[in-house]
Design a protein around this nucleic acid. Sequence first.
DNA 1: GCTGGAAGTTACAGACCGGTAACACCCTAG
DNA 2: CTAGGGTGTTACCGGTCTGTAACTTCCAGC
Lengths: 196, 196
Amino acid sequence: MTDGVVERSRPRDRILETARDMFHKHGIKGVGVDAITEAAGTNKMTLYRHFESKDELIVECLRANALKAGAMWETFEAEHPGDKLAQLHAWVRKAAAMLNTDGRGCDMANAAAELTEPDHPARRVIKELKEAQRERLVGLCRDAGIGQAELLADTLSLLFEGARVSVQTVGAEGPSTQFVRMAEGLIVSFRGTAAN
Amino acid sequence: MTDGVVERSRPRDRILETARDMFHKHGIKGVGVDAITEAAGTNKMTLYRHFESKDELIVECLRANALKAGAMWETFEAEHPGDKLAQLHAWVRKAAAMLNTDGRGCDMANAAAELTEPDHPARRVIKELKEAQRERLVGLCRDAGIGQAELLADTLSLLFEGARVSVQTVGAEGPSTQFVRMAEGLIVSFRGTAAN
DNA sequence: GCTGGAAGTTACAGACCGGTAACACCCTAG
DNA sequence: CTAGGGTGTTACCGGTCTGTAACTTCCAGC
C-alpha cells in the first residue's frame, strides 16, 4: 500500500484512487500524470479518455475526498443515534485521531495553497465543499442544543484546521497535542451559555 | 508594486525580495527562477552566483520572512511598553488585520504543504522558525500573568493558523471573521483562571 | 587610466511537464 | 463467430523547469 494501487477494478476508479493518494502524499504539483497512470497500472491515454485534463482530475479527486468525509458523519449518527452531543464529541475524537495518523494537512487546504490562480476550477469546488462541511458542523452544534452554534462550530473548525497545518509544520508533538483539551473545553464553555 | 520589484539595490537583495513576494503570491512550485530574476531586473546567472540552488533561495526567503515577522513583536513592545496584556491584544488585532489584507496563508505553512519531501532543507527551517514563533507567544502570555500560558498561546496560534487557511479556502467572509471575537473571548476566559 | 571582480548575455544541456495521434489488442455482447 | 468499444503501446509535440558554460560589459578602487 505504498503508491501502487493496482487492484483489478475499472481503470477510471484506479486512476481516481491512485491520484487521490498521490496528490495527498506528494502534493498536486509534485505529481505528474505519468506517475499517476503508472502507479495505477494503466497509461496516460486511458487517463485522458476519462478526464479531459489534469485540472478536472484534481477537481474529481477533491469531490471524492468530500464524499468519503461525508460518510464519516453517517458513522457518528450510526454510533450515537439521536444523541447529537455525543456525535459532536465523536467528531472531536475523530479529528484528533486524524492529527495523529496523518502528517499531511487537509487536501483542500493544501490544494488551495498550491493552486494560486484565482480562477482555477478547483478553487470554487474547494469553497463549495468547505462551506458544506461548515454547514454540517453548525447543524450538529445547533441540534446539540448549543447557543451560538455558529460560533462554536467556526471555532472548532478553525482550531482543527490550525491543528492540521501545525502537524504539517512542527509535527504531531507540537501544539496540536492539546487539540482535544481545547475542543472539549470550548464545548463545555458553550454549553454553559443559554441556548435561548 | 505588482511583481516588479526593480528598485536599485544590490542584486542579491532584489532577488530575495522579489522571490519572497512571488513565492507568497504564486506558491513555490508555481514560480520558476527565470521569472524571479526577470521580475528582479537581473538574470539567472546572478541568482546562481548568490544562491547555490532554488532550494537554498527558498530557505533564505523563509528566514527573511521570519526576520520581518520578528520585527512585528518589537512594535508591540514599543507601542505598549511593559504592558504585556496590551501587547497580547495588539497581537490579536495585528493577526486579524493580516486576515483581511492578505488572502494567502502563512508562507511557512504553504511551503510545508508544497514541499513534501521529508528531508527537504526547508522543512527543518520551517519547524525551527515555527517553534521560535510559539516560544514568543507563550512568553507573552506568561508575562501577561496568564495561568496556563502555554495552553492559551497554543490555542490562539492554532486559531490564527486555522483562520489563515480558512481565508485561503472560503475567503475572508467565512469563519475567519469571528477570529477577534474568539481570541478575545479566550483571553478573558484564561484571565479568569488562577495564575497560581 | 588600468585592473579586477561583479553583473549581464546568450546559448545550451537534460529532464520533466501536460496533452495528442495512430495503431494494435483484447474481451465481451450480440 | 464477429463486431465494436474499451484499453494498451509507442512515439511525439511544444513548452517549461533547474542548472551550467563561455563570453562580454560595466564600474569602483587604486
